[in-house]
């Protein structure tokens, strides 16, 4: 798994069926990447629902959050609509898990992403990473502490 001070590998993934997002577009802003196993499973839904409520707090730190799983863009669309999510879910779908593998966040046995968080600074360098046990929603306190340490620099 990539760690603090590693360069965050760039990627381009579908955020909606007709829109792609590249990490490099976010140079100059802080980015939170939340790899998670799957849309619809209960823990993930709670985790994404939780982050959905915190967008204004992330914005205070000039940070954008994105979820990433191996689910397809259409699956993400349905999930996002059902949970009323206001941030992008990226489809690491083809080649499956390619981005997760680059970040060391892929679980080969399950064919899913692990539950891993990255906070990436404005220069595209990883500031903080954390892998949570699959069944445990990591909450947001770690993300906020990492964002706070960025501000203090």
């Amino acid at each position: 798994m990539l760690q603090k001070k590693d360069v965050a590998p760039d990627f381009t993934l579908h955020a909606t069926p007709d829109q792609k997002i590249s990490l490099s577009e976010f140079k100059g802003r802080n980015v939170i990447l939340a790899f998670y196993p799957a849309d619809w499973s209960p823990v993930c839904s709670d985790q994404m629902a939780l982050y959905n409520e915190m967008l204004k707090y992330f914005k205070q730190y000039d940070a954008e959050i994105m979820g990433i799983s191996v689910d397809s863009k259409w699956c993400h669309l349905a999930f996002s609509q059902s949970r009323n999510l206001h941030f992008p879910l990226l489809a690491d779908f083809e080649p499956k898990g390619e981005v997760a593998k680059k970040y060391g966040a892929y679980n080969e046995a399950e064919g899913e992403c692990n539950r891993v968080l990255f906070v990436i600074n404005k220069e595209g360098i990883i500031e903080w990473s954390y892998q949570s046990p699959i069944a445990i929603n990591p909450g947001a306190d770690g993300i906020l502490e990492a964002l706070e340490s960025l501000i203090k620099k």
Binding site: M54, I136, G139, A140, D141, L144
Partner: peptide
Amino acid sequence: GMRSGVNG
């Protein structure tokens, strides 16, 4: 709650 690690 957010800062205390509330996750649900």
